[in-house]
Amino acid sequence: MQEGDLRARFRRGDPDAVRSVYRSHGRLVYAVAYRVLGNRDLAEEATQQTFVKAWRAAQSFAEDRELAPWLAAIARRVAIDIYRREALRAADPLESVAPGDPALVASPQSAEAIYDVWEVRQAVAQLPPDEQEVVRLQHLDGFTHTQIAEKLGVAVGTVKSRSFRAHKRLASLLGHLRE
């Protein structure tokens, strides 16, 4: 299916086209929503609303525009609306509100920060699975190379070389190398 055909079929609401657009852009939309809301359920709600709004607005979407930034912009607006709704609804005593509740988040993330999420996420997705795992354990879980080696049952040297290769790829993809 060519992109032009796909866009036309998406406008008509063809389920196959909707699936195709979701598979290529759903993670982006979800990441943007999660970045704003910090809550999985609300991010899913925002993702669903984003695609519905995109479908409603697809008739006026210019053929030469890129889908990703358009969807990301819709996702951000939808997520901020949900964020405000949840913030208004938070009438419970403060001590009963979970630390991750959107009502306690200071402010929605900027569009710039949201696009950064997309850039880095795309780069991470291009790493081989074993390198992704090391990067995830190192940065998200905060493990040292030694702890990662114990967890994965491999030598520390193996973890170090995987980590080096992974960060070399990331730095290259994200323009952090001078070459």
Binding site: G13, P15, V18, R19, Y22, R23, G26, R27, Y30, A31, Y34, R35, G38, R40, A43, E44, T47, Q48, F51, V52, W55, V117, V120, R121, V124, V135, R136, H139, L140, G142
Partner: peptide, 22 residues
């Protein structure tokens, strides 16, 4: 890289729900 949002994955059923909603 340290932001949790970088690593979260949507529920696999979300695709069907998006298709259903549209």
């Amino acid at each position: 890289l340290e932001a949790p949002g970088m690593w979260v994955e949507p529920d696999p059923g979300l695709e069907d729900r998006v298709v259903a909603a549209i």
